[in-house]
Design a protein around this nucleic acid. Sequence first.
DNA 1: GATGATTGGTCTATAATAGAGACCATCATT
DNA 2: AATGATGGTCTCTATTATAGACCAATCATC
Lengths: 140, 140
Amino acid sequence: MAASNALNTRFDEWRDRGFDANACPVRNVLDRIGDKWTTLILVALAAKPCRFSQLHRNVPDISKRMLTQTLRDLQRDGLITRHVFPTKPPSVEYRLSPLGQSALAPLAGLIDWAEQSFAAIQASRAQFDAGDTSEHLSAA
Amino acid sequence: MAASNALNTRFDEWRDRGFDANACPVRNVLDRIGDKWTTLILVALAAKPCRFSQLHRNVPDISKRMLTQTLRDLQRDGLITRHVFPTKPPSVEYRLSPLGQSALAPLAGLIDWAEQSFAAIQASRAQFDAGDTSEHLSAA
DNA sequence: GATGATTGGTCTATAATAGAGACCATCATT
DNA sequence: AATGATGGTCTCTATTATAGACCAATCATC
């Protein structure tokens, strides 16, 4: 099955297809997964279904505009569903779809890696910013 | 160990810390992993160490400016190393560091998910774009 | 019965970011 | 002496994100 190819053979496949963004799942799908807010929203909804205002309170520094847009994109991709309840001021609830749920496992893998690597990354940044010009000069 | 917490308990932890971007591995680390070019560069380097021009040829639609910047950021985070060979026109080779290598496994998980889910996502998009206003109206 | 608050957004104006492509010095080839 | 490759930087413009005002409806408060 192609899904468990080694990464390097896959890269060659992508390149040979000209990296067409429409045909490349990585560029097509991960561009969205990877944007500034998507992961945060998905993880927030993993905890529990949530209404617009509640999400906005949970993720305090997102603008309404970006929250709307992120939710629309996730809905378009089928990762979340939007449910309108005809209450007096209508309330709108967002939920993870099964497809969205299926994204949580690989996402958790990446989050685990991020947490485990955070210290090392911060150390590396500090060293780099301290002007560590220990350039890796190698013999010709 | 905290690393395998359920996602929802973790989200609450993050929120309780005020989502400080400096303290939150997800926002801090995944923002970089998730940007437009980083994953592509990492996967390209997973195949083999690569020189600047070679990378630029492999990823045809990145500008030199963004390639430079992405490589600098990855170097700063310690995911790749930069090796200067004092050849006549100096050549510069980029390689995955052990830390960068360690990112490949979780990244591959996400890539697998993307490939497996791509068809479903495209179908969902098509339906959404076809103006499928089957709003999920629910009883109050 | 006006005041403010909450609902789920939209709209505009500005700030930050990405991209295109010119440019640079050095050396080898033609 | 012109061409191309090396690994970049720099500037200018186009795209994108953010902040925050605004909106209609409905409710509770004073």
